[in-house]
Design a protein around this nucleic acid. Structure first.
Length: 583
RNA sequence: GCCCCCUUAGUUCAGUGGUAGAACAGAGGAAUCGUAAACCACAUACGUCAGUUCGAUUCUGGCAGGGGGCUCCA
């Protein structure tokens, strides 16, 4: 889409927000409209319906009225008005009045518009042919949203909708939403039996089944393998700590509300760890370090606990216990680049193996307007950000810079993956930490015998395993690459008289290191195939009279109708190769 | 936390002011089957606590759990 077209679509969508208002006001007099912008894939409009509540059930009625009103709409007229005029025009809409006062104090122009018998306050940018251009729309959902995003202010009702140039585009978009729903990890997670929740355990606390645990461990083992090759060592820490540790690290203050606290019977205050760095720092600090033993690279896959608001919880994407594949590198200034690039190598290798070919790189910097959110001095930050920028420039094909996205202790490089239906997810991260080393006085003894300040690098490859698995499930629609599939090969005897041959074959494959399952249920072949397809097993081996001698196999691939004949030996070689390549 | 919606079997859904019906899954049979199941028959559910009522799974409210969201500004 050209920029012009994109702008035009934005105008159409924004105009539809106005249309929603016009229709809502005519259906429910007394309705006040707040803001209604175009957004990435549609638009929304905020309302105050007073005591009346509306829901998705009202959409057919609302859409119908919208279409009726649209018939009488002409190209939008836009003109400027004075503050007094504006106050008069919107006297019974407190939200518009608040905005008008804002604009007045800032000295901004005030404009209104009218597409035909419907006046609204708006900065402009509307459809110039409403009757034709605005036809292809649909209302999607309602939501609560705070006035101006401030949770201390009133909760408004937000209506989301979308619109496109043509009906085909609209239908395509709706189909995509359906597809996303089908891939929803919460649904697939149940179907594939990967994880579950229990009301007794609580929301946001997933329980991993044998299959789910298998996948977690496979992923984690792979990360460990990549790290071990680069000099990392594993450490282990307890999951609780005295509050003193977080007072010193600064987390107590920053994460007060999210900490799970524990008071002992002797009235000492402990906290569940919300992160691992302060613990790992204590391991580093157990003894003085010579420059000769730097860097020290600690890694540990472990859970952290955060008291998220219940409304924020969602499936695996937002949980209260997060498994991090965490690593902390304690190194000298001069070693930052090498260590960063090592992590970068791991990230590249890992994401290729799990099926994400493209990773976007984002340099996350501090927000200069709100320096109070960060630890340290502006000078320290400038230097740290400079070195990350240099590394990213050298290593990344291209990258974007995002002020305000840094961690509170330092800038970072974030990696974003694109999934198979075009969504973007933040996944891995490498963070430079200049502040914890100051706070905890971390040093090494350098060549001159002096204590030299060191830096820390925080590096998570998957980040949160929960979130990562949710992204992975949705990306592959549950059909994992062979190396990750809980069951890689399903053996299907045609009838019970083939069970013996099937078991023999299963044993053969098991010995070759393949995760194989023999479906010896007393059912038809068609039924067994259906079961294996639903479980997204990559390979199915059908054993009947023709194959009973185990020289040749009928191999059926996941998602494909055709079968292929193959020798047993060749099949084992092929699958083994596929698993080893992690492709 | 806040706003709106939802909660019936393990899962997906139907239904009623007089305590419920199905499909798949499960256990049991029959059949011994060649590339996406469903031949027979069995068991299993109204989230929870109150209120209204002669009577509540159904109506009302609290609680719990789930879903859509919570500044891409007029």
């Amino acid at each position: 889409m050209t920029q012009d077209q994109q702008q035009k679509l934005q105008q159409i969508r924004h105009s539809l927000a106005h249309l929603t208002v016009a229709a809502a006001k005519s259906l429910w007099p007394g309705t006040c409209n707040a803001i209604g912008p175009a957004i990435d894939d549609g638009f929304y409009q905020d309302f105050d319906f007073g005591t009346h509540t509306i829901s998705e059930k009202d959409f057919p009625k609302l859409e119908k009225r919208m279409r009726e009103i649209l018939k009488h709409w002409k190209p939008f007229k836009e003109w400027e008005v004075s503050v007094e005029e504006a106050r008069k025009m919107f006297a019974n809409n407190p939200y518009k009045l608040e905005l008008i006062e804002d604009f007045a104090t800032k000295g901004q122009k005030i404009t209104v518009n009218d597409p035909g018998n419907f006046l609204d306050l708006c900065r402009g940018g509307h459809s110039d042919n409403p009757k034709e251009d605005m036809k292809h729309f649909k209302l999607l959902s309602t939501a609560g949203a705070y006035w101006r995003g401030d949770e201390k202010k009133k909760m408004l009702t937000r209506i989301y909708g979308t619109a496109f140039f043509t009906d085909e585009d609209l239908q395509k978009h709706l189909t995509m939403l359906e597809e996303a729903k089908k891939r929803d990890h919460r649904k697939l997670g149940v179907e594939l039996d990967l994880f579950t929740f229990s009301d007794l355990v609580g929301p946001g606390l997933p329980l991993w089944t044998p299959r789910g645990t298998l996948i977690r461990n496979l992923l984690n083992d792979f990360v460990w393998e990549l790290r071990r090759a680069r000099g990392y060592e594993r450490v282990t820490i307890p999951h609780i700590t005295k509050k003193d540790l977080y007072e010193k690290s600064g987390h107590w203050d920053k994460f007060k509300n999210e900490l799970f606290r524990i008071t002992t019977r002797e009235e000492h205050v402990f906290a569940m760890k919300p992160m691992n760095c302060p613990h790992h720092i204590q391991i580093f600090k157990r003894q003085p370090h010579s420059y000769r033993e730097m860097p020290q690279r600690y890694t540990e896959t472990t859970m952290v606990y955060r008291d998220e608001q219940t409304g924020e919880l969602s499936g695996l994407s937002r949980v209260r216990c997060i498994t991090q594949d965490d690593a902390h590198v304690f190194c000298r200034q001069s070693q930052i680049k090498d260590e960063f690039l090592k992590v970068w190598d791991i990230i590249d290798a890992f994401y290729k193996a799990v099926g994400f070919s493209v990773l976007d790189v984002r340099l996350s910097l501090h927000d200069p307007k709100h320096f109070e959110k960060y630890l340290g001095t502006p000078e320290l930050w400038k230097e740290a950000e400079g070195s990350l920028r240099a590394i990213a420039t050298e290593r990344a094909k291209q990258f974007t810079e995002a002020p305000g996205e840094a961690a509170f202790y330092g800038p970072k490089v974030d990696f974003m993956a694109h999934d198979s239906i075009g969504r973007q997810w933040q996944v891995a991260t490498i963070q430079l930490d200049i502040n914890m080393p100051e706070r905890f006085d971390l040093t090494c003894v350098n060549e001159k015998g002096e204590n030299e300040r060191i830096v820390m690098i925080h590096a998570a490859i998957m980040g949160s395993i929960e979130r990562f698995v949710s992204v992975l499930i949705e990306h592959h629609a549950g059909a994992f690459p062979t190396w990750l599939a809980p069951v890689q090969v399903q053996v299907l005897p045609v009838s019970t008289k083939h069970d013996r041959s099937a078991k023999k074959l299963t044993k053969l494959l098991l010995e070759a290191g393949i995760r194989v399952h023999c479906d010896d249920a007393n059912e038809t072949v068609g039924y067994k195939i259906r079961k294996a397809e639903k479980q997204k097993v990559p390979y199915m081996l059908v054993i009947g009279d023709k194959e009973a001698k185990l020289t040749k196999l009928a191999v059926r691939l996941r998602g494909q109708q055709k079968t292929k004949d193959m020798m047993v030996k060749k099949f084992v070689e092929r699958v083994t190769k596929e698993i080893e390549k992690r492709k």
